[in-house]
Write a protein that binds this DNA or RNA. Structure first.
Length: 449
RNA sequence: CGGGGCGUAGCGCAGCCUGGUAGCGCAUCUGGUUUGGGACCAGAGGGUCGCAAGUUCGAAUCUUGCCGCCCCGACCA
């Protein structure tokens, strides 16, 4: 993509309303534009990141055996009356009436709808288990939206729902999502830790929040270093196999957000050298809620004995749009964003320091074509801006690699390659540079699978 | 929802107290000089001063109502 054709409105100054770094950078780097309190338009650069993150979430859901579908954003109040939540949900729910004065709502979540869908299509215990998910925009009329997309009112969420015949089977579904989440966040270059969460009306140990560690995270977290250092399950993991050891290994170690933190317990369970007090952002929540919806909504299947049994259910959310902010919180510096390759809006920023110079133009054109052919996504700065401005701009938007092409280097047959994350700069000959970049990008992308 | 604050050009802000033809920096456009880390000179364009009523000869400025946004708190993916 040529920068001269792209839409990238950058801000030199930080808008005063942005309080946290991800919000500031998303506005400055032209990722989003606020359209109302907690409501954002995704500009082209931000949209590309959002789609990359969404795709990783999707791939890991599919790998775990979940099946994608799509439910509407607008729901009927009637459905929510069945579960009793229409009254219970409160003002967070955006209620709408249509032209016939029918009560509608913009979905804050989809438990009722998926239950309604599945109860007609699943009749026997032989039809189970089922894991269904969708990635859809939600609306929660938060009292106080803030921090940009980190706590917007409209947000993109992946929510999976599990349906099982009994508790033991439900635990298997739960474990699949638990493991899928470990992989999902790791692929985005994030360190995550599952932490015990409110177990809700059912009780038990099947509720975890997934917290991403970031220096500027919204809440304090305390955990065992060994939890963070644990290797992420590989892409060859068998989701139909026994995942319980992987889950147990992690849930046995201390991890708590500051609301649930117990200093005494922490010190008792974790050796001093292994104690991590850090900051984090909640990006996922997995939750088993048993028959909370299946009973009132009569979602039952015939068991082996012919008797109807209410479905055992769980739901598993990932804040997709929030993750864009979380990645920035975890990967930035004074200069701007530092995207991990797997979610970067483009892999490479190709800077032509002197458009109009025949050699520079020719070299850039050949890089651009070589990258395109190799599947390396490139943003080609072909504008007439001054070098300093181009460098600052490319640092701000934070593409993982920069290829800097100018007459001065070309005189010696070299271009400069900069790694945005490490800041390392190196020279490469005109002949080798494309190959070097393609190799690094390919390797990096492979690594994040 | 309680408390506080703010709406003036794309962004950051001054002007308001004490009413009198709307300003500054950055950005944008034109010309010139520059050209490897956010240049310089000269000129130019761009604003229903959030909206509406009121007071007044005259309102960005005073009054009232409404709308929007931000911060702190309680709440949340």
């Amino acid at each position: 993509m040529r920068l001269s054709r792209f839409y990238l409105p950058l801000l030199r100054e930080t808008p005063s309303e942005a309080q946290i770094v991800s919000h500031q950078l998303m506005l400055r780097a032209g990722l989003i534009r606020q359209e109302g309190a907690g409501i954002y338009a995704w500009l082209p650069l931000g949209f590309r990141v959002l789609k990359k993150i969404e795709q990783i979430v999707r791939e890991e859901q599919n790998r775990a055996g979940a099946v994608e579908m799509l439910m509407p954003t607008i729901q009927q109040a009637e459905l929510w009356r069945e579960s009793g939540r229409y009254e219970a949900y409160g003002k967070e729910m955006l209620r709408i009436t249509d032209r016939h004065d029918r009560e509608m709502l913009f979905g804050p979540t989809n438990e009722e709808m998926i239950t309604e869908i599945v109860r007609t299509g699943v009749r026997s215990y032989k039809d189970l288990p089922k894991l269904l998910y969708h990635i859809q925009w939600k609306f929660r009329d938060e009292i106080r939206p803030r921090f940009g997309v980190m706590r917007g009112r409209e947000f993109l969420m992946k929510d999976t729902y599990s349906f099982d015949i009994d508790k033991a089977a439900a635990r298997k579904s739960y474990n699949k999502m638990f493991v899928a989440y470990l992989r999902t966040f790791a692929r985005m270059g994030l360190q995550s830790a599952p932490m015990r969460a409110e177990s809700g009306p059912i009780g038990g140990d099947m509720s975890h929040e997934f917290i991403v560690l970031a220096e500027t995270g919204e809440s304090g977290v305390f955990c065992d270093r060994r939890l963070v250092d644990m290797p992420v399950p590989g892409s060859d993991i068998d989701f139909e196999g026994d995942l319980q050891p992987i889950v147990d290994q992690r849930t046995s170690l201390y991890a708590a957000t500051d609301e649930k933190h117990d200093a005494a317990e922490f010190e008792e369970q974790v050796a001093e050298g292994d104690r991590i007090a850090a900051r984090g952002i909640e990006v996922g929540h997995i939750f088993n809620f048993g028959t909370k919806y299946s009973e009132p909504m009569n979602a039952v299947v015939a068991g082996p004995d012919g008797k109807n049994i209410p479905l055992e259910m769980g739901s598993y959310g990932v804040g997709v749009s929030r993750l864009v902010g979380a990645v920035i919180e975890a990967h930035h510096d004074e200069g701007g964003c530092r995207w991990p390759l797997s979610v970067a809006p483009f892999h490479v920023g190709l800077i032509n320091l002197k458009p109009g110079d025949a050699d520079a133009d020719a070299a850039c054109q050949s890089f651009y074509q070589a990258f395109g052919k190799a599947g390396v996504e490139t943003l080609y700065d072909d504008t007439n801006a001054r070098p300093g401005e181009k460098f600052a701009r490319m640092d701000l938007i934070g593409l993982p690699f920069q290829v800097i092409v100018g007459p001065r280097g070309l005189k010696n047959g070299v271009v400069e390659i900069k790694n945005r994350a490490t800041g390392d700069k190196s020279e490469a000959s005109l002949g080798d540079a494309a190959e070097v970049i393609v190799a690094q990008v390919t390797k990096g992308l492979q690594h994040s699978l």
